[in-house]
């Protein structure tokens, strides 16, 4: 690989605060190494903006290793950019070419209002989680050892796969309807598959779907875009499972 720096044109959404009208602004950036991560490239841009006396671009980030789910950029028309199975912080500049124009936008959804520039408020996900994404466990000192409960390996694996969802919101950002079905279904599935989660299964799915609708997310039309763009590869199987859980609960209620 060559170490020759790339010259790029960046078109970035700038918005002063939640109340202001935002717009796309154009920036030139030079000598970007292909070994940099995408967020490091934005760090370089921000240093450049600060040295020029301009306001740096606000963007969400935390662990920068694909675990926390904070980074949330829509890059060149795709959630987390053109690579697959990665978050924005894991995206490298080698995915781009010298002279490219890169569009950088916040995750767009009515339920994810822009806070500033590329930062969006994803607390809608927290409220959905609070409405049912938990198991009530007695912690009085008589807690049963988890290993005492026999769980089929296949179910344990599926529950674990669902639990790898980091709640970044790429599914919502990429869905043409801004639907949160993949996220909610992963959170429903990780409990629905395990014996500990079965006790509250009906209330959980009803409450989480109700909260999802209250937050203003759109409906799932099964395009499958969410599964493709999900950095953790959360499967559409989870949406089907949630639909089954919901139907069962709705009939029983």
């Amino acid at each position: 690989m060559s170490d020759k720096g790339m010259n790029l044109t960046l078109k970035i959404w700038r918005q002063k605060d939640a109340q202001s009208q935002g717009k796309m602004e154009t920036y030139q950036i030079a000598d970007i190494s292909e070994h940099m991560s995408f967020l490091e490239m934005l760090d370089v841009l921000n240093e450049q903006l600060i040295s020029e006396g301009q306001e740096p671009v606000a963007f969400d980030h935390d662990c920068r290793e694909g675990i926390c789910g904070m980074c949330s950029l829509y890059i060149n028309g795709e959630a987390h950019g053109p690579d697959r199975g990665v978050t924005t912080c894991q995206l490298h500049m080698r995915m781009f070419n010298d002279g490219d124009t890169i569009y950088i936008e916040p995750f767009r959804a009515k339920a994810f209002p822009v806070v500033k520039d590329l930062v969006v408020d994803r607390s809608a996900f927290d409220r959905i989680q609070h409405s049912g994404g938990f198991v009530s466990v007695n912690t009085s000192g008589n807690t049963q050892d988890a290993n005492a409960l026999p769980i089929p390996k296949d179910d344990a694996d599926k529950a674990f796969d669902a639990a790898t969802c980091i709640g970044c919101g790429a599914c919502v950002a990429t869905c043409k309807n801004a639907s949160a079905m993949l996220y909610v279904s992963a959170k429903v599935s990780q409990f629905a598959l395990l014996p500990q989660g079965k006790v509250e299964a009906k209330d959980r799915v009803m409450n989480m779907v109700k909260q999802m609708d209250l937050e203003g997310f759109g409906n799932c039309t099964n395009t499958g875009a969410c599964e493709v763009e999900c950095p953790k590869g959360i499967s559409l199987d989870n949406i089907a499972r949630m639909n089954r859980e919901y139907l069962k609960a709705a009939i029983d209620k």
Binding site: G77, K110, K176, N177, S179
Partner: peptide
């Protein structure tokens, strides 16, 4: 669904995933 996203993307490539 139309209400769920009021501001559209300046650049969108839905053909890459659906």
């Amino acid at each position: 669904n139309n209400k769920a996203r009021s501001v559209k993307y300046a650049m969108n490539k839905p053909g890459t995933n659906s």
